[in-house]
Design a protein around this nucleic acid. Structure first.
Lengths: 141, 141
DNA sequence: TTAAAATAGTTGTATATACAAATACAAAGA
DNA sequence: TCTTTGTATTTGTATATACAACTATTTTAA
């Protein structure tokens, strides 16, 4: 019995986790070029696309908890990619010039990552998979 | 634009991670009864099923790194569910009586978890999903 | 108009996992 | 036999994420 034929192959818990870990790794390698994790990079791209966006919105869009969003922002702030303005209870995020300069590079990474998994999984199949996963994830509580 | 219609819905990175997190949560709730995380529980079930199994084998079966396996075992040892014997460079794991007594409960959890996601996703659809995810995960490096 | 409830975000802490380096033993070749 | 290489596991440390509790502000309603 090898790893691809474990007794747990039929368990959603494991297959979903294995897939996520492998994809995390693949994505991580891609974004290494800009020295950002995929999560940081995606968050930054939203801020670039939507200057002034609030953490709460990011939390909804990325489906990460507010506390995780805070942590991601902290790091992007340290690296001087975003600035935070606080007005009452509202926080707004803006990209710095440094971030704006990085945008083309970020887009290239997105593209490269997609190319990469399409190369491995096939265009058709990966599109179908993403749709399925997305649909099912939305059914879950 | 709400969370289920984010601009990143078409990104494999996010959909795979969202799915994994949600499933982790669902599974975690199920195994709460026996005060174990799903990973600990599955590892323990393998040890029960295959007394004397080595960490390396567990690493292959669960597709987790050796260091992660070590950490999982540590906790199960603390909780008095497994014992380790070391002979030369080989480590063997055995279930304790306490673990053996817990087995039926563990199996009930596996079953309940499956019931639960089948209830949400549908029998057909979840079987197909698991197979697809599994197949694709295996294609990835 | 003030007390209660809701909203937005942050902080402390915990979990799951990984990587890289270290350890300890075993096997193989000179 | 000694040395190199390989194998099995552990340890130190790092990352990604979450939960619960907290702070600060705004809204509601009595």
């Amino acid at each position: 019995m090898n790893s691809s034929d474990s007794r747990y192959r039929e368990c959603l818990y494991f297959s979903a986790n294995v897939l996520a870990r492998k994809i995390e790794k693949l994505a991580g390698a891609t974004w290494k070029k800009v020295d950002l994790s995929p999560s940081h990079a995606y968050l930054l791209m939203i801020v670039l696309d939507e200057p002034g966006v609030q953490p709460g919105t990011l939390s909804d869009e990325l489906q990460l908890t507010p506390s995780t969003i805070t942590r991601l922002i902290e790091k992007l702030e340290e690296k001087n990619f975003v600035v935070r303005t606080v007005t009452g209870k509202i926080t707004n995020l803006y990209p710095t010039p440094k971030a704006k300069k990085l945008l083309p590079e970020l887009k290239k990474c997105v593209h490269q990552f997609q190319e990469e998994y399409i190369k491995i999984l096939g265009k058709e199949e990966s599109t179908r998979l993403v749709n399925n996963i997305h649909k099912l994830a939305n059914k879950l509580p």
